[in-house]
């Protein structure tokens, strides 16, 4: 599979560039290397939520059943999104401890991501409450679409309304990456590597779901 090969190329390249090629940022020192993992994780968490939201819309619009595995896709993507959001929160907290002196400061971006995690923990609670009901797919897809509508307010609007201590070399009003060329290259490679890893893991989870569904339909074959 082409995506697997690309993951095997880009992931080691991202690690090498982050630790051996990119220079450290002024004032931040070695802690700035966290950027090459924290930013891609945060990006993948947003990408995963967007994919799960779009897959949920496709599932709701698909009256003829042309996309049979789409329910599993949006659920698996939400699971991966939750995992990467947790990792982005953890890596961001480590950096906050090193720079600001405490793991948690209720910075607008920290608040945004924790609320995003709350939304998706609510999604999993709803899905558990709907276990065994025929409307499970429809209702959980509807909730994901609502969550996707709310997400831009958290991720993009709230940090702009409130003052933030968070550095903005990547997400900023200029829509430009304010980094040195080497750092920018390392960050872009890392973003591509983590995005490919996400699609690779999503495909693996979807295959696992297909096998599980087939086993449930014909358990003795």
């Amino acid at each position: 599979m082409a995506i697997t090969r690309l993951v095997y190329i880009f992931m080691p390249a991202a690690v090498i560039l982050a630790f051996c090629y990119a220079p450290t940022a002024a004032l931040l020192g070695e802690t700035s290397r966290l950027l090459y993992f924290h930013v891609p994780l945060a990006w993948v968490s947003v990408l995963a939520f967007a994919v799960s939201g779009i897959a949920a819309i496709v599932f709701l619009a698909d009256k003829r059943g042309r996309f049979p595995g789409i329910e599993d896709s949006f659920h698996n993507s939400a699971s991966l999104g939750t995992l990467t959001a947790l990792l982005a929160t953890a890596s961001g907290s480590v950096w906050a401890k090193l720079m600001w002196g405490s793991y948690w400061n209720w910075d607008p971006r920290q608040t945004s991501i924790i609320i995003l995690l709350l939304i998706y923990s609510a999604y999993f609670s709803l899905r558990s409450a709907l276990a065994g009901k025929p409307a499970r797919g429809r209702l959980s897809a509807a909730y994901l679409v609502i969550a996707m509508t709310v997400m831009p307010f958290f991720v993009f609007v709230v940090p702009r309304v409130f003052l933030s201590l968070h550095p903005d070399p990547v997400i900023n009003p200029d829509m430009k990456i304010h980094l040195e060329t080497e750092m920018r290259l390392a960050l872009i490679v890392s973003l591509v590597a983590f995005s490919l890893l996400y699609f690779y893991l999503l495909e693996l989870l979807n295959r696992l779901s297909r096998i599980r569904n087939a086993a449930e339909v014909s358990p003795h074959e």
């Binding site: 609320i115 709350l118 939304i119 609510a122 999604y123 609670s125 709803l126 409450a129 709907l130 009901k133 409307a135 209702l139 909730y143 609502i146 969550a147 709310v150 307010f153 958290f154 609007v157 709230v158």
Partner: peptide, 19 residues
């Protein structure tokens, strides 16, 4: 539709209403 009433409503509403 989910059947489990009070607690689920607060759980699923709170993150959406928070902004």
């Amino acid at each position: 539709k989910a059947g489990s009433r009070g607690s689920l409503f607060t759980i699923i509403s709170f993150p959406v209403v928070l902004p």
